[in-house]
Design a protein around this nucleic acid. Structure first.
Lengths: 159, 159
DNA sequence: TGGCTATAGTTTCATTTGCAACCAACCGGA
DNA sequence: TCCGGTTGGTTGCAAATGAAACTATAGCCA
């Protein structure tokens, strides 16, 4: 790799490898790509699809709006995942009688079956990541992620 | 929010909020979106653009291939960022005389000037994140990220 | 009731992204 | 010196993403 020492180096240049946002982005991409491949190859599901199913498994009967709140996904993404999953028969959609704009979403039997088969794969991937950490470090990680997320939430908030 | 307690809940459902890949993804998205907005609004640069400039600031004269190695970006993304930046006059491209496939890339004076103005913003954003952590925790975070990246790198490697 | 505003969800369109195919230049051996 | 394989980089195309417009329904209040 060319080092370029013959050229002027900007004095206070940032070292990308040490730059937190870059490191986070790289880590997340690596993890997400590996997991996305897993879900896709095994069940033809995208990560958004998986998230929708995961939430419906825990909170059955919710609306698309509830999914938006619980997954932080964009409502368009939710709408599309739901449409795909309904299409594939993995979830059932029934229009609410009280509010005909809303619909109530439920995993179908097949949806639950698929979900049950994904869960171990997801847990396994997570375990492989956490295997690199001691118990102590896992506790620390938990705290750090919460703290960072909290700080991140206020990052652009100075608008 | 609809709780849906009247419906069957899958027994060993995953709690998305606690699922490490989800938390990483959410954190990274929050951070990246905030920073992307910053760079875009201030200088019309995307994050890939910024990364290319950051590497060229530290390693002037490198080739697109060097950028790929140092940023872990896709070579297509590098190609497009470089094209944009050359177009805007922020970097200079000169075809290497030894290997006419390669070109050597350098920040222009304007490029260095823009870069110099972004650096404080980038550092500032990073500082705001790290402000949520104690010194001790920062050290821990550094280690954890390396460990997780290492584990992540071997995640899909069982192919 | 009529009319205004707000919400649920979908569609449309423009932008971004990423893989695969591609072109051009280099390299090593017959 | 020609030929097969490799590398540097770009282009084409198709899928993913996201903002904004749109449809339909609900709720409020004069």
């Amino acid at each position: 790799m060319e080092t370029g020492v013959t050229h002027p180096v900007v004095s206070d240049a940032i070292e990308l490898e040490q730059f937190l946002p870059y490191r986070l982005s790289r880590l997340t991409n690596t993890v997400s790509n590996a997991i996305a491949e897993l879900y896709r190859d095994s069940f033809g599901l995208s990560i958004p699809d998986w998230r929708v199913m995961a939430v419906l498994a825990r909170f059955p009967g919710g609306s698309a709006q509830d999914l938006v709140a619980r997954t932080r996904m964009d409502k368009v993404a939710v709408s599309r995942s739901v449409a795909r999953l309904v299409e594939r028969g993995l979830i059932h959609r029934t229009t609410s009688s009280k509010d005909r704009r809303r619909s109530s979403l439920l995993l179908s039997d097949e949806g639950r079956s698929v979900y049950a088969r994904i869960v171990p794969m997801a847990r396994d991937a997570e375990s492989q990541l956490l295997a690199a950490l001691s118990d102590r470090e896992r506790v620390a990680l938990d705290k750090l992620l919460d703290a960072l997320q909290g700080a991140a939430d206020t990052l652009g908030a100075a608008d």
